[in-house]
Design a binder for these strands. Structure first.
Length: 389
RNA sequence: GGGCAGGUGGCGGAGCGGUCAAUCGCAUCAGACUGUAAAUCUGACGACCUUGUGUCUACGGGAGUUCAAAUCUCUCCCUGCCCA
């Protein structure tokens, strides 16, 4: 597996932050990085050229969604994800495990709560399609097959993501199942890779909820599998930020040093900084893109909502001195106008800005770690970001 | 000039004697969103305050009927359509 080489470039002295590189068949990842989410094989509202302009090293797609529509066989027939979506850089596919959790929660008002939508069994998970209610069954083996067909560079083990508030007993049950599934994923993955020209890296996912003993146990277990990277799941799923940071502190020393560490589903600018200082190398989150479509944007001075009437006649860009296409060319007034008028271009402009904000933040993080003043940078950023003006 | 249909909160439009400060939609204002069923969802939206099964002012204007009127009667004003 030497095509998935991991190389540490620089380490921060005061924190666990590090700058590194991870090689994949479609290019190198410059870590720490943020990965824009493109669940249905597209980062909503943007085209690949724009993502390249934003310096996105890698993007995500989702097993669950693409399996249901159009079907992973279709993507395979069309030449695989990269070719199909015209994205030449690396791709990571999520396993669909998270969807099991998010659908089981039944938190959506439009959800049919009469039906048991998800049944977790030892062998796998039975669930109903969110599209037409049809029954489907995922096993670790099947999820490996789907991800093999999709053809992403990094693929994820099938896991059970327990809600943040889960009891020790429940979290342990989910963790044990995830461990067993991870072993089965690894076995199936090894089998599938033999016939593949372009290899894929499988990452296992640490679970254990907010219970320190479980998290340590899970981290040790997953590290032992000796896969090319390791992911931390089951965070930012309802627990507090303090609990999330604490959990990262607890497992920090058990994470393999010589492999990329991926904190799944995170997050906000502050979460990225806190994550990096706890040794995290990869992040992904829908927040940048979703919030953009909902009218909120990030700046160095915090989070703002474009809908607020105070932005109506602001001639300045969303953020002064921002290097993104949106801020270089348009006033806040104009972007707000497009948003208020429900114009597609407005959604794109805010999406570009938010993604740029996070990707640029990570780029600065890499620079400051190398320069040896990461902590100073982080403290100053957070102080300004949370300062109420 | 004659006939008909109407005038309700920023707009559209319900209600047709009490449970109406008035359904609903739009607009507006604000909030939420963390491995995307999300260009979505939630809340506020007459005024005032001691924020309460609180007090005022309100369904074109005025005058009535009634214990009680956005809802019934009379009258005036206005709007739209049709006929001269």
């Amino acid at each position: 597996m030497d095509q998935f080489k991991f190389k540490i470039i620089s380490k921060d002295k005061k924190t666990s932050a590090r700058v590194s590189e991870f090689s994949t068949p479609h290019g190198k990842l410059h870590l720490p990085t943020f990965m824009p989410v493109g669940t249905r094989a597209t980062v909503k509202t943007l085209n690949p050229e724009e993502l390249v302009d934003l310096n996105a090293d890698i993007i995500l797609a989702n097993t669950y969604h693409l399996y249901l529509r159009p079907g992973s066989e279709t993507v395979k027939k069309m030449g695989g994800l990269h070719k199909w979506m015209n994205w030449k850089r690396p791709i990571l596919t999520d396993s669909g495990g998270f969807q099991v959790f998010s659908l089981a929660l039944e938190k959506r008002p439009m959800q049919n709560t009469d039906k048991k939508l998800v049944k977790i069994k030892e062998d796998g998970v039975e669930f109903r399609s969110y599209i037409d209610g049809s029954k489907h069954f995922f096993t670790p083996e099947k999820v490996m097959q789907i991800q093999s067909d999709l053809g992403a560079d990094i693929i994820m083990a099938f896991d059970e993501c327990a809600p943040g508030e889960s009891t020790h007993a429940y979290a342990k049950q989910a963790m044990d199942r995830t461990h067993e599934w991870a072993e089965r994923c690894k076995k199936e993955h090894n089998k599938l890779q033999k016939s593949k020209k372009i290899k894929q890296a499988l990452f296992p996912i640490v679970q254990g909820g907010i219970h320190d003993d479980l998290r340590v146990e899970s981290t040790k277990f997953m590290a032992k599998l000796d896969l090319p990277g390791i992911a931390i799941g089951g965070l930012s799923v309802g627990e507090t930020k303090e609990q999330m940071y604490h959990t990262l502190d607890v497992i920090k020393d058990y994470l393999p040093e010589d492999k990329p560490r991926y904190l799944m589903g995170v997050g906000t600018p502050e979460d990225l900084l806190e994550g990096v200082s706890r040794g995290i190398d990869m992040f992904d989150c829908v927040m940048a893109t979703r919030n953009a479509r909902h009218g909120s944007f990030w700046t160095k001075d915090g989070k703002f909502n474009l809908k607020n009437c105070g932005f109506k006649e602001i001639a300045d860009p969303l953020m002064k001195n921002c290097g993104c296409y949106t801020c270089k060319n348009y006033s806040t007034s104009y972007v707000r106008h497009l948003y208020m008028e429900n114009e597609t271009f407005g959604l794109r402009l805010v999406t570009i800005h938010n993604l740029h904000f996070l990707l640029d933040l990570m780029s600065k993080v890499r620079t400051h770690i190398k320069n040896g003043d990461f902590t100073d940078f982080k403290d100053k950023f957070l102080k300004r970001y949370f300062k109420k003006s």
